[in-house]
């Protein structure tokens, strides 16, 4: 029994990281994904900010799931999410102004990130707080991984650094395109390609092994 529930919890956690990865599989939250992943640091901050909002709001939504009437649930979710976004906004200002400037309006725009509302509506409002938060944690980890994947490549090629640490020495030739919006699209496309190729390969392998299990 406890084994079963443990695997279930693990499944909930892994769902967002691999099977339903918000960036690579569901292609959600593309606006911040493309806009702020100029550097790994920005990507990480954005990811963590989103993670905080996601986990907190999912927890709160889940707590209130039985007392909030259906008619006003979306309004409630939005208020809750907006609250945590505001909190994050203040927190980042307090921690580092540089990061705050780099992320710009995209912190406030976390409110309309469909990952969060989607999770609140589709998962948190139907599950107990613990499950909801584990799932949200997995999702946000998946999102952080996605952003980091983009941010790392773009920073390494676009500036020759990683988290601000120079990798290639002073004479590095930066690839300007990588820190421009087109670079975001190109790198995202490349990652999506890689992911879907991997997925396809896996499915083919499963189909070969399981014989028709691959549906």
């Amino acid at each position: 029994m406890s084994d079963l529930s443990q695997t279930r919890t693990f499944d909930e956690f892994m769902e967002g990281i691999w099977r339903q990865n918000p960036v690579f599989v569901m292609v959600l939250g593309m606006c911040p994904t493309l806009a702020v992943t100029v550097s790994a640091m920005n990507a990480l901050s954005m990811g963590l900010a989103t993670a905080f909002v996601l986990v907190c709001s999912c927890g709160l939504v889940s707590l209130m799931r039985n007392i909030v009437p259906k008619e006003v649930r979306i309004a409630t979710y939005i208020v809750i999410i907006a609250t945590f976004v505001t909190v994050v906004d203040y927190a980042i200002q307090a921690v580092s102004l540089a990061v705050y400037d780099a992320l710009g309006a995209f912190i406030q725009l976390i409110v309309v990130n469909c990952i969060i509302l989607g999770r609140a509506e589709a998962h948190a409002s139907k599950h107990p707080p613990a499950t909801a938060m584990v799932n949200a944690l997995g999702m946000s980890l998946g999102f952080v991984i996605g952003l980091l994947a983009l941010g790392t490549v773009r920073e390494v090629l676009g500036a020759g650094t990683l988290f601000g640490v120079s990798l290639f020495g002073a004479n590095f030739q930066p690839w300007v395109v990588m820190v421009l919006p087109p670079g975001g699209f190109i790198v995202l496309g490349a990652w999506l390609l890689l992911f879907s190729t991997l997925k396809q390969r896996k499915e083919v392998r499963l189909a070969e092994q399981g014989g028709g299990h691959g549906a």
């Binding site: 030739q173 300007v176 395109v177 670079g183």
Partner: peptide
């Protein structure tokens, strides 16, 4: 176009 965007100086 790609290298123009990537290496405008060169």
């Amino acid at each position: 176009a790609f290298v123009q965007a990537a290496f405008p100086a060169a």
